[in-house]
Design a protein around this nucleic acid. Structure first.
Lengths: 231, 231
DNA sequence: GCCGTTTTGTTCTCGCGTTCACAAACTCAT
DNA sequence: ATGAGTTTGTGAACGCGAGAACAAAACGGC
């Protein structure tokens, strides 16, 4: 048993809930920008695209930030979630691999607006060095360790082809990075103390294709079975 | 009670399994390219980054494609999964919003190699019309319906800013698109017959930041508690 | 100050997904 | 043919997350 202080935020938050907090944050920002000061769990749930009971349960893991009979103060709740997520802090980030995707990521405004600052763009290809992308100059991959050390970078983004991703990951871990976001279509092997998250651009498309395919075959099957056994 | 034929693949496949099939497909392709003809569930599970029991159970939903005591024929299994996923078929796709991200998506080779063919790039901005990206000319957004009709497009990709995403989605649904992959950071409201999948580039980064944050506060807490109650 | 209304925070139940563990089935050597 | 050794496919147990339902708490009118 551990004694809890009033500012304690260390209670266990389920992973599923953590994954939804960014969505709530985004919805709250939208509400705030549209001039809404207070919202009910029903409103916020609709804006975030989830069930209101689930939303309330999720928020209850963070604490009791609502007022019964009234709802949630949009800006207050937004701040609380942002604080819990670490979005009030500035996170220096390194992006490795400045191809099409790296380009897009470097320019993505959603990173900056959520507290992520791209402190360096790295590429193994000497041709690209010196090129300026999104106001940041592309540097050699070998500068990684120095940059990580200098800026205290904890998070690295891999946007290289699959073939080089594991090497990049190894070097990142060596340099002291403890969280990796991997856009390369390959599974990374890293130590247990390193968190890896993967985004697969075509995976979602494949899942959609599967459902389309299924719809089509289901229709066929229905037709065939109707012809065969007209019950 | 429905009679099942031998070629029946219509049994229910859990959504969680469907989401992993693309990963297995990718792993099998890698194995095949490295010259592996047969692999055990253990091998494939390692390549895909999952538990071997889970892998076997997932594959069992598709059918019985392995040989006990031996393993799986890599190419045969790959074909079976590809067929089930609809990856043996050609899927025409439309991308709307040719900013940085749309550019990257249009050039992404992973789409083409998995059976997706970008038949059109659309943008509302007249400045971009005529520009050629990845061998495809950028056309006005208003051409959507005609293109969908002409190519029989079922899948649309939204890579616009959040503000226009809902409008684009509405027009896509009107035009007959039934599956949407949404990269815009907003929740889309569409009819029940339309499947929407969402990819949030910064969400994963925020989750990583949360865990980093937690690591840091956990260390602090440990230090503080050690100082306070040195049991 | 009291009561009805609203909305949160939480308890409880159910179902899905993960994992373990093992029987069935195949290969290979003898 | 038979037995030893592998590896698949699946039945059963378990744990987590989703959703319904309700009690607790705040507000507003009188």
């Amino acid at each position: 048993m551990t004694a809890r202080t009033s500012t304690d935020t260390a209670r266990e938050i389920p992973e599923a809930t953590v994954a939804r907090l960014p969505v709530y944050l985004r919805a709250l920002t939208t509400l705030s920008e549209s001039g809404t000061a207070v919202c009910s769990s029903e409103d916020l749930a609709a804006a975030a695209g989830v069930n209101s009971a689930k939303l309330r349960k999720d928020l209850s893991y963070l604490g009791s930030y609502g007022t019964r009979g009234v709802g949630y103060d949009v800006d207050y709740l937004r701040y609380q979630i942002a604080r819990e997520m670490g979005a009030t802090r500035d996170w220096p980030v390194v992006i490795v691999g400045i191809g099409n995707l790296g380009h897009a990521l470097a320019n993505y405004s959603g990173f900056r607006s959520r507290g992520f600052r791209v402190v360096a763009l790295l590429d193994a290809d000497g041709q690209r060095h010196g090129e300026v992308v999104a106001g940041v100059v592309v540097r050699p991959f070998d500068d990684l360790a120095a940059i990580v050390h200098e800026h205290g970078v904890a998070i690295g983004v891999i946007a290289t082809p699959a073939a080089s991703a594991q090497d990049v990951a190894d070097r990142m871990v060596e340099s002291g990075i403890t969280s990796i976001l991997n856009f390369a279509p390959t599974v990374l092997n890293v130590g247990d103390h390193v968190a890896v998250s993967k985004v697969d651009l075509s995976k979602e498309l494949q899942v959609l294709a599967y459902h389309e395919q299924r719809k089509a075959t289901a229709e066929e099957a229905a037709k065939a079975s109707a012809a065969q056994e007209p019950a």
